[in-house]
Design a protein around this nucleic acid. Sequence first.
RNA 1: GCUGCUAUAGCUCAGCCGGUAGAGCACCUCCUUGGUAAGGAGGAGGUCGUGGGUUCGAUUCCCGCUAGCAGCUCCA
Length: 638
Amino acid sequence: MAGAIRVEVEGHGPVEVPAGATFRDVLAGAALPAAADVLAVATADGRTLDLSAAATAAGAARVRFVTFDDEAGLDVFRHSSAHLMAQAVTGLFPNAKPTIGPVVEEGFYYDFGADPFTPEDLERIEARMAEIVTQDLAVERIELTRDEALGLFADNPFKVEMIRDLPEGSISAYRQGGFIDLCRGPHVPRTGVLRAFKLTKVAGAYWRADARNAQLQRIYGISFPDAARLADHLRRLEEARERDHRRIGQEMELFSFHDEGQGFPFWHPKGMVLRNAVVEYWREAHRRYGYQEIQTPIILNEALWHTSGHWDHYRRNMYFTSIDDVPHAVKPMNCPGGLLVYKNRLHSYREFPLKVAELGLVHRHELSGVLHGLFRVRAFTQDDAHIFCTPEQVRAVVEETIGFMFEIYGTFGFRDVAVELSTRPLVGTIGSDENWANAEAGLEGALRAKAVEFKLNPGDGAFYGPKIDFHIRDCMGRSWQCGTIQVDFSMPDRFRATYEAEDGTRKVPVMIHRAMLGSLERFIGILIEHHAGRFPLWLNPTGVKVLPVADKFADYARHVAATLAAAGIRAEADLRNEKLGRKVRDAQLAHVNYQLVVGGREAEAGTVAVRTRAGEDKGALPLAEVVARLKEEIAGKE
RNA sequence: GCUGCUAUAGCUCAGCCGGUAGAGCACCUCCUUGGUAAGGAGGAGGUCGUGGGUUCGAUUCCCGCUAGCAGCUCCA
């Protein structure tokens, strides 16, 4: 075939098409089973092109056809969705000036120079978008000179500004029906494939993300090739809303926030029961691992923070006060206090590794706009620990800590843990080359010894030492950084902390900072959302409710509740003047693990009728047996 | 911090064009004494976030403040 082109199609093989053919022809020649789903083409050199592009395009000798399920295809799909929205918006609001409309992690957005949109406007825009999809307009690429582009977008100052910044010869636009948008592309071939979409929110934004520039109106949306996937996505969003720990915290009376203390959580009795259950387990585990526990003051002389370096590096996040006219600061971290405890007497290498834990309440000034329930607060309790050891002990200490970390996460039901190792930054570090090499080798060696898979972040360590971070994944697939192990060459030196070594000389110990849950408050927020308030028995503030079927069995119900409480089981009797059905319903909504129904038969036989949170009716069981089984379940932290 | 939206009973919310407020749930009392997801009746409960302005009169309109919510890397 004269002038034929040969294109290697991934997953298919070579396809020959005549000169001047487009990828659409290549696709037809390849006869792929999912040809109708193909949105664009990805070249071997990493570019994505339109199906209408010439098959001779640079780097296109090897290509892959991409669909929505392909990352490149997803981007094209969402970007075309943004154009679809812009077409609808400009159709309904002729004065709206489209600016930019990129793809983001959760869908896409488009910023318009326009008056604010109302929720009703969004509905109209969605309806117009649906019409355009039905019309199944062809999406065409148009190459433009700068002058042509300036002429075409003369009425849109934002586009004009963008065109001025673009190099001549690489300016393009896309047309679908009567709508033309300046765009690099690529795009889906026809509007008809953009079947399922939802405009999710409106927000203010600035031109070029600069608050000094014009205020724009941003509309966010999400789109899918079919309604089922959109419905699935919306259902997941709804589920996340239902799991919102702020809502559950209010409903289950765990904690509250008040105007009088922005970003400062108030713990209620039920929340304290949950929190204490976490802390009791934490203490028990730390005792097992040979930790000692200390507590250091919240307010300390400002001079300490000069010594520690926080005044230089962290001042803008700290709160200051004065006592008898002497400047003091509220602690944002626990280590300086911990070092004062360490320095209170001479230490010997024989005590090492010295593991000192502190549930330390720290205060940090966070910007008001970033506060978010328990996830981002201004006062929180770090489950901190400082481990003092010799350089030789680093690896063993880290190895033990990694094992401890996984044990703790596993107990709370987090088995998917991602680990990252961050090493020495290129510039601005303190500590000797030898120290860094030893510490990095210790951290990495420990990870390998524990056969932990990890991601290496070269140069991402702190200026004072390398670190390992731990991210737990919750049941919604969200990742949370909680744990950290950081080697610190700075602090012991600044505080002139020493120990007496085997050879009788005074040496500076290695200090390892370590947190597992991170912030107790935030971790409890994560727990709430992970479990959607349906806590395991050992954590649930109200694990058991005793439900008498009528008032006359209140005494027996009280007896049952008291028996459970005496055995360390958190139980309440529902003695309200309500019917059983109502009590069952309320107990269910309160996420109680077990409902124990008691009436004449049970009172007579000394039994309780057990109903589980899953709605299972276990029938009447002897009270003593139930107590034993629940105690076992609590002990096992199931 | 910035932008937008919001602020009415303990909670969730309604309240038109300006004439000092309403529902459901929760709470209290009474009736009902019931066997596995809401029994009935009655009652109490609000300085309409806060400070100003406009007005004869402001929960309502305007401005400031405070707080809450969302967004604030994403470059045609």
